[in-house]
Amino acid sequence: MQDIVQHTQTVALTDSVSRFQKELPALPMLLVRNQSCEAVIAVQGAQVLQFKPQTGAELLWLSPNAVFAKGTAIRGGIPVCLPWFGVNQNAPSKPKHGFVRNQDWQLSEIQEPDPKTTLLVFTFASNAEDLALFPHPFTAQLQITLSNEIELKLTLHNHSDSDAEFSWALHSYHPVADLASAAVTGLSGLDYLDNLRGLQPTYQDGNIRFSGEVDRVYESVPTSQQILGEPAITIRGHNCETAIVWNPGAENAAAMNDVGEGIHQQFICVERGAAFGNRWVLVPNESRQATLQITGSS
């Protein structure tokens, strides 16, 4: 990784101790600074943790109580939940949200096509130990393009000799200045699976608001959703037809050591992926790609 980074103009090595004053041992990270933005990416999970355009507000939320430890999920940014999203429906005892977010990815390429754009490519290959949890060898590639917006391209490849079912999400956390007045648009008129009521289908009438815990899965959604509030954020997805909207509410947040009392008022999750009825089934040697774009108002 150091060999790739040292030949760039906009990328530098950093870590969780240097960047966030957290305890040792440090997790390796990358700091990107170009003419459009500043961003931080953890090598663990290829997880974008922070992103701030030069002319706008921070578009990602990172918990002030996030834990930076090897093999532990980092609360905030954009975790990659894969090869299943949420609780594994066939084996609930398996780790929630899969296992790739807790493992190091390989930085395979950096491109700097112009002073305003930085492109990084991370790859993940499942190993023999992973086969005990997911019996299909696969690779994942995450192409992260950072300019005045975030663009993520996720590519999955099934290397097994049988069909492989993938359920996944780019679990993006977004900041809100006032949770009570924030809203999510672009999902009205759809049914959602309500995780607070055993995934019971429920009709969405109007914008989504946050007066308590919200945990909803929307299938086959339109391309674009918006967060109304401060900052205003637009989320667009191609070939990731599921949207997940989540806020833990006061009681759950207080019980989470990496969130804490009152901290739920700082963020909402508006995620895109392919889960439940939109999950991907890849035949042997098949690849499939999806794109997520996150843009703020300037």
Rank of each mutant, 00 (worst) to 15 (best):
Y203P: 05
I144T: 15
T223N: 09
R101L: 06
W61G: 03
T185I: 00
L179C: 02
S211Q: 09
V184Y: 05
T14Q: 07
L282S: 01
P83W: 06
I41C: 11
P53D: 08
L13G: 06
D114T: 13
H171S: 09
E213V: 05
P284D: 01
F68R: 04
T295R: 14
N65E: 08
C269I: 09
E241G: 09
A66P: 00
S172C: 09
S108N: 10
Q293G: 03
C240Y: 13
N127S: 11
N34V: 07
M256E: 08
R279H: 15
Q200L: 15
A290I: 05
A177K: 08
P284W: 02
Q225W: 12
G56F: 07
S188R: 05
N278Y: 06
A73E: 08
C81V: 07
T234F: 11
E241D: 15
E112W: 07
V40A: 01
L282N: 00
L190G: 03
R279Q: 15
F68G: 03
A132Y: 09
V221L: 07
D130F: 03
A177N: 07
A42R: 01
D178Y: 06
P201N: 07
P79I: 03
R75Q: 05
D130G: 09
E261V: 00
S188W: 07
P248Y: 00
Y173Q: 08
N257Q: 12
W105L: 09
P284R: 02
P79G: 08
F122R: 04
E230K: 13
V80A: 04
A73L: 10
G277Q: 14
V80W: 03
L179M: 02
E149I: 03
V32M: 12
P137A: 09
Q89R: 15
V40F: 02
K94W: 11
T291Q: 13
L59D: 05
L228I: 13
D161Y: 00
A91Q: 13
D3A: 14
Q47A: 00
L82P: 05
A183G: 07
T8K: 01
